[in-house]
Amino acid sequence: MAGLTAFNYLPGNTFLHVLDVRVKLAALVMLSLTCIRADLTESLMMTLCLLFLFRAIHLSFRSISRELRYFIVLLLIVFLARAFFTPGRPLIGIWSLTMTHQGVSDGILIAWRLFLIIMLSLLFVSSTRPSDIKVAVERLLAIFPFISRKKVAVKVAVMMSLILRFIPEIVNQAKETLDAQKARGIENRKNPVYRLIKFAVPLIRRTFENADRLALAMEARCYSENRTDPELVSTQKDLLVFAGVTCFCLIIIIA
């Protein structure tokens, strides 16, 4: 997957890989929501748990930090915005701006929470097969009474897996188009509208042609919306994990 290697499925057979996808997806959503309310000690606790889990699925810290470097810049911006724009006791003054005590502690907490949530989704994506994600989304959507499983949930799940399939293809196509333009000396053209058009039209036209081919291939293979999905089994262990995560979230939210 060109340029987006961290967020990929990492084959394996660890505790997280065998866990029922539905449990994982539900836990991801619950924990993400809980993170927003966690204070400093609770965030620290979660970070330690996450570090342990990362070791468990053999994800190297080097690849994570390389893939997330842009995100870290974003976190830094969030932190600085908080640190400078929160009123309170002044800490350091730079030009006309002052960093406040309250701002710094606030900023650290918020940046930390965002970081935790990214780590959670990274764990989920790297320990779950894309086809399993599709089935889990379908099942969880079907829980809601106003979403019929046949009509909506299946479509949404299929579209989601199609998105994941299209992304690497588009990235490669975009790279190819940019290179082709460079080879033809696009840099000499200063008009940005011209460049955007000359970039987007071939890119989108080609990806649409590929999509047409995909539609034909799906029809030729008798695609239908009621196909047999892989069986999902949850054992006692899955229930245990689910109960544990739920308790943890409730404790943090109430406390």
């Binding site: 987006l4 961290a6 967020f7 991801l28 993400s32 995100f71 989704s121 994600i133 989304v137 994941l164």
Partner: peptide, 9 residues
């Protein structure tokens, strides 16, 4: 759902 589709991966 946690798929990497927003800015910054």
């Amino acid at each position: 759902c946690g798929l990497p589709v927003f800015a910054g991966g």
